[in-house]
Amino acid sequence: MTATAGPLLEVRDLHMTFGGIRAVQGISFQVAEGETLGLIGPNGAGKTTVFNMIMAELRPTSGEIWFRGENITRVPTYERVKRGIARTYQVPQPFGEMSVGANIRVGMAPDDIWKLVSEGADHAAEADIGRSVGFSDEQIDMLPSELAMGDLRRLEMARNVAVSPTLLLLDEVFAGLTLREIGQISELLVEKKRKDGLTYIIVSHDLRALAPLVDRVIVMSFGEIIAEGTFDDVVRDEAVRDAYLGQ
């Protein structure tokens, strides 16, 4: 697939209604390849719902999602991953009874039953991915229950790196982390971007951690976009202040 001149991801007029609650009402935005977009807003603004729709974990009530000039609105999750979209979760979702290495193995495994059976695991490559997100060699054999929150976020990163995405959706990557861990994860994100040219959309409540990473910020409130621009512009915006203070 060749890179087109247009945006990497485009979301057109997405709506999502749960029962009677309109969680997302007409969201449209674009992300260019190589860009880092911040997605902020008070609790319940619909940020995670947008992620869920981009990953096809939720089917939008209406609206379209385009990726690399292709309408992927009806494409299932695993196909979107193959096209290059991946995500992390607000609450990390490791495979609880598997070691870090085995978690990465699932990420690396091809979606082809014959290959799953006939080809063995590449332990060296697993360890490489593990190390590339900052795991030590002993940690590769540990279980998720033995890891700290920062390491669990690393594990999610590792599993995502294993599917070699171009667009990575990061949901509250800094939540529950110590200052030191925040620094490490930020560094990791910057480094991955420099090396692999990743595009990020980052949802975060931690605006201080977010500021140095993002090129552009979208602010959501009650399912709508209320502001858009550079980080500095947006935080000075009257409507944004109201939305956060009204919380």
């Binding site: 999750t77 695993y78 991953v81 991946a86 990420g107 495994a109 979606d111």
Partner: peptide, 9 residues
């Protein structure tokens, strides 16, 4: 869900 989001059908 996590298996799906690592690209598996």
């Amino acid at each position: 869900e996590a298996v799906r989001s690592t690209g598996h059908n």
